[in-house]
Simulated assay, not measured.
Amino acid sequence: MFGLMGVTAVALIVKLLGRNRTENVDGLLIEQTSRVQAHNDRVTYSSAAVHKSSPTVRHHYRP
């Protein structure tokens, strides 16, 4: 039983580590573009940008 669980864990680790490899330049460029887009989205849609105040400001109004 423990052997089966160990084999399953090793298979999952190998599968997950194998997914992160990019074999060609096109894949690297796509990943880089995605990272840049995600960074821009985080900056554009941050709490400070959307609400024009920091998220720690407390308001006295409670619904």
Rank of each mutant, 00 (worst) to 15 (best):
D41L: 12
Y45S: 05
T33D: 07
H39P: 00
S46E: 01
T44Y: 10
L28I: 08
K52E: 13
V25N: 06
E31M: 06
V10M: 12
F2Y: 11
E23H: 02
V36A: 05
H60R: 07
A9Y: 03
S53Y: 11
Y61D: 04
T22I: 05
R58Y: 12
K52D: 14
T22H: 04
V36K: 04
P63T: 01
G3P: 01
R62Y: 01
H39A: 09
H51F: 15
K15E: 12
G27A: 01
H59V: 11
L17H: 12
A49S: 11
L28H: 03
R42H: 04
P55F: 15
P63M: 01
I13E: 12
I30E: 00
D41V: 09
V36G: 03
K15M: 15
Q32T: 07
Y45K: 13
S34Y: 06
K52Q: 14
P55S: 15
L17D: 12
A48H: 15
V50R: 12
Q37S: 11
R62G: 02
D41G: 00
D41I: 13
T22L: 07
D26C: 00
I30D: 05
R19M: 14
R58C: 04
S53P: 00
V43K: 06
A49R: 05
T8I: 10
S53R: 15
I13R: 02
V36N: 02
S34P: 00
L4Y: 08
R58M: 08
S53L: 15
V10L: 11
T56E: 14
L12K: 11
A48K: 15
I30R: 02
N24P: 00
Q37Y: 05
V43F: 01
Y61H: 15
A11K: 05
A11W: 06
N24L: 02
P63I: 01
N24A: 02
H51A: 11
A11N: 06
S54W: 10
R62W: 02
V25S: 01
V50N: 05
I13D: 05
T44K: 06
Y61P: 02
V50W: 03
H39T: 10
S47V: 12
L16S: 14
L29G: 01
H59F: 14
N20V: 13
V7S: 09
H60N: 10
S47Q: 09
A9V: 05
T8Q: 14
V57A: 10
R58T: 06
G6N: 04
R19Q: 12
R62F: 04
A48G: 05
T8V: 08
E23I: 03
L17C: 12
G6D: 09
L29I: 10
K15C: 13
R58E: 11
V50M: 09
P55Y: 15
R58H: 10
M5F: 03
T22P: 00
S46M: 03
V7A: 13
R19D: 11
S47E: 08
A38S: 07
L4H: 04
L17A: 14
